[in-house]
Each structure stands twice: as C-alpha cells, then as structure tokens.
C-alpha cells in the first residue's frame, strides 16, 4: 500500500532573507569581546584573538562574530590604504590558506578553511569602497534598504521620466519595425541618458567618499553617538540613492546592448 498520498505535505515556504526583514536585530552583535578572552585549545595559553597561538603556534578557532576590520587588525574606518590591505591579504594568505594545512589534522584543516574564507570575504568587502560602507552600516544595524526603493531621487525625476519615455518609444519602434533613422535617433537619446546617469553615479560615489571621510574624522575626534548615528543615516541614504542610479545605468546599458 502506498502511504505517500495520505501523508500531509510539509508546509513549504520560500526562505526569507532575514537580513532584509530584521536587520538591526542580528547584525549588531558585539564583536570582539569573545576574541580577547580566548585561550589556545592546544596549550591553554591566552591567544588574544590572534590567528595563531603566540605560545605554540597552532592555528586558532575563529571567535564568533569576528568582524572584517578586526580580522585585518584595522580600526572601523572607511579610508583604507589599498596597497597595504593587499599586502596584508597576501601575507595572511600565506599563513592561512588550506594548501598549507593539507597534511594537518582535521581540526586544523577546518580552522584554516574558516579563517581563510573569512580572510577572502573580508578582503573582497574592504577593498571596495561601497561594500565597505555597506558592511560598516550592517555591523551597526544601520543599513536599511529604503522602502521607497523604486522611487527616483527628486533631482533625477525629470531625467528618469524622459528615460522611461525613450525606452517605451524604443520598444514600440522595435516591435513595429521602425525605420533605421528613427531607431538611431532613439539610440542616441538613450546614449545621452546613459552618460547623464553615469555622471550621476560618479557624483554619488564622490558624495559617498566625502561622507566616509567625515565618518573617519568624527571617529578621530571622538564624536558622540548622535553625531555618528546621523552620519550613518546619511551614508545609508547615499547608498540607497546609489543603488537606484546603478540600476538605471545597468538598465540602459542592457537596453542598448539588446537594440
């Protein structure tokens, strides 16, 4: 007898990315307290959260919640010397990469995998000025993708409106087999729009760099929580604007590639 038909179906639900639902709750876990109190599993010496035990040299477990900045031994600042970061990345890669633990114990191999994957994740994030800001905000639970994600920034409203019109015209012309001249005209319009939005993107990137510098200065001068919160909100707003413009640029590029 086949029971499978009478068995109740499991309650299927699409997975939900919690990061987008409950941002502040989880991303803001305190980071470094566990690290500093750690001791070496091999020789019991205090490790101070180092990659290797200062006493016996064994690779150490990764404390939960280790953040990318502290992994590289960096302050949570947004100006990063990329050359220095790359050098550290290379020197840590030599020490942590699984290649050098191929003949080690299972435990050590796992630790090398944990540490080297975090190293790579951290390097990938910190070398990119935009990802760096997003990450910092995420750590503080301050990264909030706007509910009004689809809404154009006010200063771009007119351009976006024009763009949508040109896009509609282009699709229509394509569907009805418009003349070559008409198509070329529309293409030129789109290309102009593309340049315009690329310029906006560059401008917003500069703005992000400015706010990032402000953040670093505030950190140096020991600004209070209200001030840094304000800066974070500002950064969050710039990021949202940036992602909107970025989508526009990608959309136009794709449309041009297809036409």
């Amino acid at each position: 007898m086949d029971f499978s038909l009478s068995r109740p179906k499991p309650h299927r639900l699409k997975p939900v990315l919690l990061a987008s639902l409950l941002e502040s709750d989880f991303m803001s876990a305190p980071t470094t307290t566990a690290a500093t109190s750690a001791t070496c599993a091999n020789c019991s010496a205090p490790t101070g959260g180092a990659h290797f035990c200062p006493s016996c040299g064994k690779i150490q477990p990764l404390p939960r919640g280790t953040d990318f900045f502290s992994f590289f031994g960096l302050p949570q600042k947004l100006t990063v010397d990329l050359e220095q970061l790359e050098q550290r990345f290379h020197s840590l890669s030599w020490k942590l990469h699984p290649d050098h633990f191929a003949r080690a114990s299972d435990d050590e191999r796992q630790l090398s995998l944990d540490r080297s994957s975090l190293l790579n994740d951290a390097y990938r994030t910190l070398r990119d000025p935009v990802a760096r800001v997003e990450y910092l905000l995420g750590l503080a639970g301050m990264r909030k993708e706007g509910q009004k994600k689809q809404q154009a920034p006010p200063e771009l409203l007119e351009e976006v409106f024009e763009l949508n019109e040109s896009l509609d015209e282009l699709r229509e012309a394509r569907a009805s087999g418009g003349t070559a001249a008409a198509m070329a005209g529309l293409r030129a319009k789109l290309e102009a729009a593309q340049h315009k939005f690329e310029a906006s993107l560059a401008a917003v990137d500069q703005e992000l760099a400015r706010v990032s510098a402000e953040w670093d200065a505030a950190l140096d001068s020991g600004a209070d929580e209200t001030a840094s919160r304000k800066l974070m909100e500002k950064m969050n707003e710039v990021l949202n604007r940036r992602s909107y413009i970025r989508n526009l640029v990608n959309g136009v590029r794709q449309e041009l590639a297809e036409s």
């Binding site: 639900l13 997975p15 939900v16 990315l17 919690l18 990061a19 639902l21 409950l22 989880f26 699984p98 995998l113 080297s116 994957s117 975090l118 790579n120 994740d121 390097y123 990938r124």
Partner: peptide, 13 residues
C-alpha cells in the same frame, strides 16, 4: 570571489 569564500544568512519562519 577568491576561494575559499563564505556567506552567512539568517533564516526564520
């Protein structure tokens, strides 16, 4: 992304 690489995601019901 350079490997090994990882990502952590949180899920709920």
């Amino acid at each position: 992304s350079t490997v090994p690489a990882s990502a952590q995601e949180m899920f709920t019901t």
